[in-house]
Design a protein around this nucleic acid. Sequence first.
DNA 1: ATGAAAGCGCTAACAG
DNA 2: CTGTTAGCGCTTTCAT
Lengths: 342, 342
Amino acid sequence: MPVNDQPVTLADVAAVAKVSAQTVSNVLRRPERVLPKTRRKVEAAIEQLGYHPNYAARALRASASHVIGLRIEPTSTEVVGSIHDRFLHALAEAGRPSGYHIQLFTADDAAAEAETARTLIRAGAADGVVLYDVRAQDPRPGLLLAGRVPFVSFGRTVSGTGEYSWVDVDDETGISDAVDHLVERGHRRIGYIGWPEDFSVGVRRARGWRDAMTRHGLPTDLDARAEDTMPAGSQAAGRLLDDPHPPTAIVAATDTIAVGIHHEATTRGLRPGADLAIVGFDDTPTALAFGLTSIGQPVTEAARAIMELLVDTVAKPDRHAVHGRLLAPRLVVRASSRSARP
Amino acid sequence: MPVNDQPVTLADVAAVAKVSAQTVSNVLRRPERVLPKTRRKVEAAIEQLGYHPNYAARALRASASHVIGLRIEPTSTEVVGSIHDRFLHALAEAGRPSGYHIQLFTADDAAAEAETARTLIRAGAADGVVLYDVRAQDPRPGLLLAGRVPFVSFGRTVSGTGEYSWVDVDDETGISDAVDHLVERGHRRIGYIGWPEDFSVGVRRARGWRDAMTRHGLPTDLDARAEDTMPAGSQAAGRLLDDPHPPTAIVAATDTIAVGIHHEATTRGLRPGADLAIVGFDDTPTALAFGLTSIGQPVTEAARAIMELLVDTVAKPDRHAVHGRLLAPRLVVRASSRSARP
DNA sequence: ATGAAAGCGCTAACAG
DNA sequence: CTGTTAGCGCTTTCAT
């Protein structure tokens, strides 16, 4: 590693290579326009000086920062299985090929998030933002649209999806696959534990379960609701297990709830996988640790799709094509549901 | 929210306020140099136009990006309790007062991380970086030092700590507090499960346990080692519990291991907290969910300290003061160790 | 107290 | 194919 604190500029390289600054720039951005011989000369000089083009200058000149903003949410202390950090990493990785960097910002609520995003854009600190975990009634897409902030969302609102680009995972199919899998194993009393109805969250997951059950001609009475915490999951599981005709399998809307079910089952002397099948959602490390079958979101693929759409959106903020991309989840079968119903 | 796509510049504001661009700049950066009357006039214009200073231009002019780089690591699929995401959020938040933004980058290994960091600095894309989770034999501080990359680390190497600024948590005291707490509850057979010796990781945690036990005149034979996964924790716990004189309490080097212990105990019909006390490390959501006593790291405080030191380091990269800051962890007592030994 | 000039490093547009 | 000119938006001199 050469140690040289003086910032090396285009002009320095040009001087060493005995060409103009413009030619150096061309070597970097339009190599085909430059004679191979001069190119090699310039490249040697670049190498020798350890030159790196200055981001700020490029950004200023090009009016493009190549930065994507992302609000980082405070982690809930009650959620034990989240794909948030996996998503962050995947997004950072996905930006690499196109030269985009992810910059974090914090905000207290949706309005603040939108406002900060707008400021970032106006200040040229970012070219666009990614909206994480967009829910059915989420106000953020509307706010960003109004503020003319280029963005792509992970998740989508229930309406207005024709107005912005989004990437989402097909929850209904995921849950439906889980139900199919359980039915195949001989289960008929299959319960569901998800968020309370009024949360407007996970309505698609609940619907996925109900529809799948109906499709199989099975009853949908074993429906319990719980907030996304382990104790709430345990409690809800308790209610279902107290039923005169208790479930032999339960599908959960999250891994956190699934662990709660696992815990409740164990406490009652039921062996998960043998006496009670359990399926979670998100395929987090927690699911792996507890041997829980879980519906995994294709996080890497989602991040890639988001960056792709974002590059598009950023390129022509005015009249860019609006795309929605629905990705298929993948059921990861583990011990908690592998064996057939006894 | 005014909608106006034209980027608003200093000159625009100046035109509206009928002053020179320079005066607008002064209003923003040296308000005291400007007559209150003109200042108000300018502020009105700024407000009216929704002006935000352009980051790239500032960065170019000031040769300072106000960006801090941070490598985001791929999440291990086997770790169920991590403070990584909490740290990210805390860092983003900690940068706010001083106007620093966190930018993520990915790298495959320590060498790539150092190299990328160096490139970011040379390109003026970042003013400094934060090194996360620095371990005893970590090569990164040395590499960054050699590459003259301004940085502050969270965690520290075993040697060379006088050459760079770091913030760390006092593991030994944390574990020692846990042992004291258990002894107070009447425990004497207190086991420890941590990383394998040769990992050079967590040597301080292991030492903390050994020293505390010795201080209390208690034996240190119940020492098992496990990698940082739940099954490994369960296995190790099994080995300790198979001892002719099994432990009545176990201290774990991580929450992941602690959950493994919890699981093994439950499987054997031992009630955590009643038949076996368990203490984890990091106070993650997982610990909360399982009612595990855990040694919490002051993540927010650490992030603040890091940003503070970093601002210093970045300001004078050559001859800045080198500081080490050792923060005290905090024992969070929950059901898994609250009651006295029966 | 305010303004004019210059330049941070780069690249688009135009000349040669 | 290469070089010259100009300017992205801002701030640090230096005048006024």
